[in-house]
């Protein structure tokens, strides 16, 4: 019985972590955060050589053809470095949607580009959980109407995957007439969320009309898993940094980590148990 990671998964994580230490130290992360798009195409394409953008894309389309657990492990590792990359939208949700709902034509048009890191797709799913400020989109005669808020990976997107009020999954190019994107800055400067407003923007439905509900439900579940993995990764790194600091910072004549109050605030074992349990959970979920 083995609820741990496979040697291949361990290798993937270690290789990625070492690559990020070399290629994306804090200085580069901060530089990318300062860009309007918070996106560095060179970094994303560099990660394509490690199979990161194409983790869920089948090998036939130029990807690694791996499973959601592998994507979750990557998400956790990327978040340890607070990487400003469009992983959630372009490497997880868009490929899942194209594979589950799309026909060969959009798959061929987008999957190889996504896997190589040359294209990005923003994702509008927030209204499926709850519409704020009157947001929601509808598809009428091949055209999108309405607005979507909190669009993921909006700034560098070449197209947007939109879930409509009626349960359709729609793909609309960024250059479509009648489409307006406004970036929404948040407290997290590693990601640029957006507001998408469409006024008769020509768009293509992925799959048949009114049959996207089941796929949308899977997308939401996958998104929550990836976001949970990101929170875990960021927390792990924050914990490591706090512990390292507590060992070296001296005050009142000794390292501050020697004070019981500091020790009790920093629960090392809790962090380790969390990561292992999370991996076991994801392994058991069927996708």
């Amino acid at each position: 019985m083995d609820f741990g990671l496979s040697p291949e998964q361990r290798l993937l994580v270690d290789t990625l972590r070492r690559y990020l230490e070399e290629e994306a130290p804090w200085g580069r992360v901060r530089d990318i955060m300062r860009r309007d798009t918070a996106h560095d195409p060179l970094l994303w394409q560099g990660l394509a050589a490690l199979g990161v953008p194409g983790v869920l894309v089948p090998a036939a389309y130029g990807g690694s053809g791996l499973a959601l657990l592998d994507a979750v492990l990557i998400a956790e590792t990327l978040a340890q470095g607070a990487l400003p990359v469009p992983f959630l939208g372009s490497a997880v949700l868009a490929p899942l949607a194209l594979l589950a709902a799309g026909t060969p034509a959009p798959q061929q048009a987008w999957l190889p580009q996504l896997a190589s890191g040359r294209a990005c797709i923003g994702v509008a799913l927030a209204e499926q959980v709850g519409g704020r400020e009157g947001a929601g989109m509808v598809l009428r005669d091949g055209r999108l109407f309405g607005k979507a808020l909190f669009v993921l990976d909006a700034a560098a997107a070449d197209a947007f995957l939109v879930a409509t009020r009626e349960g359709d999954l729609v793909l609309v190019p960024r250059e479509a007439p009648g489409l307006r994107l406004t970036l929404l800055p948040t407290v997290d400067e590693t990601r640029r969320l957006g507001e998408l407003v469409c006024e008769a923007a020509p768009a293509d439905c992925l799959g048949s009309r009114g049959e996207g509900e089941a796929v949308i439900a899977r997308l939401l579940a996958a998104a929550w898993l990836v976001l949970a993995a990101e929170i875990l990764g960021a927390s792990e790194r924050a914990l490591d940094m706090a512990v390292a600091y507590a060992k070296e910072r001296r005050q009142f004549g000794r390292p501050i980590g020697s004070f019981q109050a500091v020790k009790h605030s920093v629960r090392r074992d809790g962090g380790g148990a969390g990561a292992g349990a999370f991996a076991s959970l994801v392994r058991r979920l069927r996708f």
Binding site: R132, L149, T182, L184, P185, T186, V187, E195
Partner: peptide
């Protein structure tokens, strides 16, 4: 505030 709570830097909404 939910999602609206993360908006910052004079974002719309």
């Amino acid at each position: 505030m939910g999602e609206l709570g993360v908006l910052y830097h004079r974002a719309k909404y």
